[in-house]
Each structure stands twice: as C-alpha cells, then as structure tokens.
Amino acid sequence: MRQFVEKEQLFRPIEAITDERQANSVGVAHSHEWCQLQYATHGVINVKAGNYSFIIPPQRAVWIPTGVVHQVNNTAPASYRSFHIESKLGDKIGSDVKVIQVSPFLRELIHRGCDAWQGKYHMSDINSALMTLLIEEIHQAPISPLHLSWPTDPRLKRVCELLHDNPGDNRNLSELAQYSGASVRTLNRLFAKECQLNFTEWRQKLRILTALELLQNNRSITDIALELGYESSSAFITVFKKHLNSSPKAYIRNLTTV
C-alpha cells in the first residue's frame, strides 16, 4: 500500500489528482483545509466521509467539504480522479457531504481539468473559465441517493457493522437486538434518528450498495443475490430496479461503456 502524504497547502485554486488504484486498496482517513470532489472514471470506489458511506460508480461523484474526515477504498481496480478545491470556490457548492450525478458535460470537464491542473500550472484565461464552469456544474448537479448513513450510538453501530461485514445475514431485528444489547424499540428509534431510515430500508440499501461492488467482478446475478441474502435472483433484481431504475445487467453494461 502506498504511503499517504498530506499536502500542507494548495498552490492553485483547483489541483487535480489522478491515480490508478489496484484491487483491495485501502486509503488513510484524513481531512484538510480545502474541499474535494472524488470520482472514478472506471471501476467503483467506496468513500467514507463523516457519518456516511458511499459507493461511487462512474456516473456519480462525491463532494467533500472542508474539514470532513474521509477515506477512499476499492475492492476492484479503479481509475481515480479528484480535485482539491480551495474553500472560497467550494463554498458555493455547499457544506454538506453529498453524492452528485455526473452528466456527460461534467465528465468531460473532469477529464479536461485532470489533464490541465497538475502541479503548479499556469493560471490562463481558459483555465479560469473552465474552473468557473466546473464549480457551476457541480453546484447544479442533481443529488443521488447512493449513500448510507452510519450511526454513532455504539449499540446500533454494533448491528450495522455486523451487517456490513455480512450483508447476507437474514436475522430479524429481534435477533439482532439480543446481539446489540438494546431492545427492538430502542433500535427502531435509533435507526430513525441516526440513519433516517427504518431497519428494513437501511439493510436493503446496504445490500444494493454492496451489489454495485460485486457486479464489477463478473459474478453471476444469482450468486450475488444469494450472497446478499435474497431467496432468488428475481427478488434481487426487483429491489435493484427500485433503487436504480435499471436491471443489474443493464447497469453494469452502462458502467463499462462510460
């Protein structure tokens, strides 16, 4: 694993990072005094930021405001692209962590910026204009629901970590309550308060986000469905379509043609 070296300052309003990440790469949790946009041109990255966990395919990017602790991991190879953006530019985009949808135009701006904004580049008129367009496109991009709230209460966190490590675990909330040390009523209240979802919705979203990673590895739909705790591939496909408006096969086909 490469050694992580934190920057001490930005030399330009926006600085680009490009990286080809090997399978099973684990990043270092860190924060900095500027904002960041994280994106994968190929593959899927897993971004943990604040109290959220995000699975980011090439049609999405994650916005990280100033000071938010974050970490980037990936299970399969990924082409990683990122912008470090000074706070006064990032203020327009907002102070909340969010996943945005990447339009074809925004994708081209990301590619252009990653080519042009490496090191202490020249601040030309065209670079200034491209930066203005980039910030405006990020600001106006639709927000995607591809995220999972992560709890802070140790009892609920114990349950969520158990399910995260084994999303195919089909135990009901009563059984998991015994493991957590909290009552079913307390866990229901904590899910609503800390995750803004009920237990069933949270586990369903966890499984869909996990599926996005598994779909990269040429696994069959049936194998993925069974690993995630579904009784059949048709049940998995139904839930997948509900969340992403696409079948798993169509989704991964679009993923490889981005």
Rank of each mutant, 00 (worst) to 15 (best):
E201Y: 00
V44M: 09
L197I: 02
H32D: 07
G113P: 02
M131G: 14
L133R: 12
R107N: 13
N170F: 08
Q196K: 10
L10H: 05
G119L: 11
L134H: 06
N166V: 01
A211D: 02
K92Q: 13
I64L: 09
A116T: 05
D169E: 10
R189L: 09
G119V: 04
A78T: 03
D115M: 06
Q36G: 07
D96G: 01
V69W: 02
S79I: 02
R219T: 00
G229Q: 06
E175A: 09
G50Q: 06
L173P: 02
E161D: 09
L89P: 01
A141I: 04
S124K: 02
S247C: 05
Q118R: 09
R60D: 15
A182P: 08
V97Y: 11
S247I: 02
D153S: 15
L173A: 03
D91T: 13
A141N: 06
G229A: 07
T66N: 07
E15M: 13
S87F: 02
E6T: 11
K88A: 11
W34V: 07
D169K: 00
D19G: 02
S144V: 11
I17N: 05
A116N: 12
A76N: 05
L176V: 10
Q71H: 14
L37H: 02
P167T: 03
D153L: 08
R185V: 14
P145S: 06
I126M: 13
S124G: 07
A141H: 01
V5P: 00
L176R: 07
S79Q: 13
I17C: 12
S174W: 01
T256F: 08
R2Y: 07
F105H: 15
I237H: 00
Y80S: 05
Y52C: 12
Y251T: 08
T152I: 12
R219I: 03
R81Q: 15
S31H: 14
S183V: 07
F105D: 13
E6W: 00
K7R: 15
N127T: 11
L209A: 03
T256R: 15
H139L: 07
L212T: 09
K193M: 14
I55C: 04
G43L: 05
E213Y: 02
L215A: 12
H42Y: 05
I252H: 02
Q101T: 15
F105P: 00
E227H: 10
G181D: 07
A192S: 15
H243A: 10
A116K: 14
I64F: 01
H32R: 11
T132L: 09
E201H: 11
A116M: 10
S234E: 13
V239K: 12
S25H: 11
E231N: 13
V159N: 03
I93S: 10
K205I: 01
I45P: 03
Q71G: 00
K92H: 09
G181T: 11
W34C: 14
S25Q: 12
R158G: 01
T75N: 04
F11K: 07
L206C: 00
I100Q: 11
V99P: 03
A250W: 00
I252E: 12
H139P: 01
A129N: 11
I64A: 04
G119Y: 09
T257I: 14
Q196Y: 10
D125T: 08
G168E: 03
Q140S: 15
M123A: 13
